[in-house]
Design a binder for these strands. Structure first.
Length: 261
DNA sequence: AGGACGCCCTGTTCGC
DNA sequence: TGCGAACAGGGCGTCC
């Protein structure tokens, strides 16, 4: 699930529930999700300290610590956060359970264990190490156009390349391309300035609307492909049946009439 | 360089 | 109803 809009909502959720309270201890249920750290090191680093602030870059969520550095959360395909004011049985598939001194608990839930929990000295270093591109909601037109200029290959895989633009995944890349009227396999180098403008605008519009809709397909604006993205779905604009193809190893849905190649 | 593919996991859905 | 296969919204490594 978690692409930029979902992670932004998790960020706000963490803000609303988990800031400014000292940690007590951490229970790691799935070692696999820890990246470059251990349950002991994580516990030592957090105990007695508080999360001061949050920041998101692409699909990564950073929560800065009062002692310096930050907790890093990445959600893979199925991760989410669940806070409870009182300690009780954590949700099924809790991979990491953060206990606060006031009795509250924050569960990092990851059914497929594909996400990661890490520590970093600074979000900026982390982003640099990963060579992540600019955040999809921050990228300006000049940077966007310059990035497109050098790219060979298809537009969908380019949008999903986190080292080019950070935050766009499979589902929202389909929506962005639909809103821009561009076929997923269109070569980036063949896009003219008008099309690139449309694309750049669609990125912002789609992601912003998705956040406002709480990333719930049922609450997307009319005219969004997302609720119709699947077998038997019809284009919300022209009623043509939506089509499925493989692109970069993932399933792309699009309207063959509105997004010709 | 970019794309296809396999893999990491587990839950759900679909076809027989 | 039961069971295996295919698939799911991420990302990494390998091969071509």
């Amino acid at each position: 699930m978690p692409e930029l809009p979902d992670v932004e909502l998790y960020r706000r959720y963490l803000d609303a529930t988990s800031l400014h309270q000292p940690f007590d201890h951490v229970e790691v249920e799935a070692l696999r999700v820890l990246e470059d750290t251990t349950p002991q090191a994580l516990g030592r680093r957090l105990k007695g300290h508080r999360l001061e602030d949050t920041r998101r870059h692409g699909k990564y969520l950073f929560a800065t610590l009062d002692s310096g550095g930050a907790l890093v959360l990445h959600f893979g395909m199925t991760g989410r956060l669940e806070y409870s004011r009182k300690a009780h049985d954590p949700p099924r598939h809790t991979a990491c359970l953060f206990h606060f001194g006031n009795g509250g608990q924050l569960a990092y839930v990851a059914p497929r264990k594909l996400g990661h929990v890490a520590l970093t000295d600074s979000p900026a270093h982390f982003i640099e190490d990963r060579a992540l591109g600019p955040d999809a909601l921050e990228i300006d037109w000049d940077t966007f156009r310059a990035a497109a200029g050098k790219r060979r290959g298809g537009v969908k895989s380019w949008l999903m390349d986190q080292q080019r633009i950070a935050g766009i995944g499979n589902v929202y890349s389909d929506e962005i391309l639909f809103q821009a009227g561009i076929h997923p396999k269109q070569a980036v180098r063949d896009l003219d300035d008008d099309e690139l403008r449309d694309l750049h605008r669609a990125i912002r519009e789609v992601l912003t609307a998705a956040i406002e809709a709480k990333a719930d397909p049922e609450h997307m604006p009319p005219g969004f492909l997302l609720p119709h993205r699947g077998e038997g779905g019809r284009c919300p604009r022209c009623r043509t049946g939506v089509k499925k193809i493989r692109a970069s190893g993932r399933t792309a849905w699009y309207c063959p009439a509105c997004q010709p190649l």
